[in-house]
Design a protein around this nucleic acid. Structure first.
Lengths: 255, 255
DNA sequence: AAGTGGTCTAGACCACCGA
DNA sequence: CGGTGGTCTAGACCACTTA
């Protein structure tokens, strides 16, 4: 086998190699939790440079098939690709999909202790302490508010209170400023819900009319919830849009 | 400057370089649409190997700051990071968030020509031809259907018709099987909507009660729409969940 | 035709961390 | 301590694309 082999395929070697390894993982040559051979071994056995091996393994990592640790080696973490499509967010602000700067009107602020209902919604134990805010979001030029939000913040994050107590606070802005560096994960739930009577009054919407109920949980270290926003949007005032794009392409059969 | 310089920082060189370039882009040394110097120039001017430059540029690409094309060069596409949080989908099936295999019941099938309303929803010109299906999605163990879906498919994709005409078709399955290789983008819209009378009857739901209206557009080549699913989910039967995770971390000041 | 990014090799040293 | 992946160098040829 010479240097350039034949490579009738147009694919780079690292793609060919990645595909081959992916197939071997899928067909059971390596099982979940098994170790892939070290880079140098793969390099020798496949007659490519270590760089090419690393490029291939990077590809498998992007597919979510393997995870790598020094000294330990390369572990199989999945048998088939995990992340074919991805959507992205440039900032927390975008999660709320503002076209322009929104204004928030804080209606109330008080410390609360989670009762059963709140505990369920917040995914915490009963009795946990939270700082609760009620707010209306307004859009310039519109008479009716866009949404009614109940905002729960871990009391440990006191600076949030100060941010919100400012006149004309920007909830998203405070989240950005105070949290963005720390928030490692955001979980979002979107449901259909009738607009509750109290919210409807504040929102100038028809009580029990259709609405979106969106809960957004902000986590640090991927597990601890530090803030939750539970929002009601009456029909027609807001919608969630998402663009999923393919992250990588399957190679065409062959081999 | 020696080989190893001083590097009091623990960061690899490609990270340092990426951060420096990101800062230069942010502070206006390079403007939107400008070209970054070629790899070889950066390699010489920063006294690092081309490989290190490429690693740094890969990082900037991941941040969405630059896009690269052969012969043309490296173009600045944003002044600040674009994709701090990402969500992922392992397959098209997951878009519909099935816990188990759903069953679809096809109610009707007919060719249609887009009228104004359909054209608006599908984002196409009036008069465009589509193959339209109506379907109910059932979940085993539940008496009521989960959703009512109007499905529009580009007639060019005939095999879809065949797939759907099979007994007990799996819409997601056909999308997977017939489309997955080609679909490069999916756009999803989630709105609040009252359940229309016809859908309510089929779904055994209260007419005009709150529901989710979800439109999913399937695109090839990132622009041509080949299929659209417009679904109604009555309250309590379905919800959309998303997990956004930080993709990369800002480097700590320094430098 | 020429210059860009894309791929690839052969080597080297380093940092981490489990045995 | 030794072996792993992580970083880095100095080269080379290739493929694409547009001026």
């Amino acid at each position: 086998m010479e240097q350039t082999a034949k490579r009738s395929t147009r694919s780079p070697r690292y793609v060919t190699l990645a595909d081959q390894l992916a197939r071997e993982i899928d067909t059971g040559k390596y099982g979940l939790g098994d170790l892939l051979p070290p880079e140098l071994v793969l390099s020798r056995s496949h007659k490519v440079s270590r760089h090419t091996v690393r490029e291939a393994l990077r590809r498998l990592t992007d597919m979510g098939l393997i995870s790598r640790r020094r000294r330990t080696g390369t572990t199989i973490t999945a048998k088939s690709p995990q992340t074919r499509y991805t959507a992205s967010l440039s900032s927390i602000a975008e999660l709320f999909q503002y076209q322009e700067k929104p204004r928030y009107q804080i209606l109330s602020e008080k410390p609360v202790s989670a009762n059963a209902h709140v505990a369920a919604m917040l995914g915490c134990r009963r009795g946990t302490k939270w700082l609760k805010f009620e707010a209306l979001r307004h859009q310039t030029g519109k008479r009716e508010p866009i949404s009614y939000t109940e905002f729960y913040v871990d009391p440990a994050y006191k600076e949030v209170g100060a941010s919100l107590r400012r006149k004309n606070p920007l909830i998203y802005a405070f989240v950005e400023r105070d949290f963005e560096e720390r928030v490692t994960e955001i979980r979002q739930e979107v449901r259909a819900a009738a607009v509750p009577v109290r919210a409807a009054t504040l929102l100038k919407a028809k009580p029990r009319s259709p609405g979106l109920h969106i809960i957004r949980r902000f986590l640090v270290h991927g597990e601890r919830v530090i803030a939750i926003a539970s929002s009601i949007y009456p029909e027609g005032r807001f919608h969630v849009t998402l663009r999923w794009k393919v992250q990588w392409h399957r190679e065409r059969a062959a081999v």
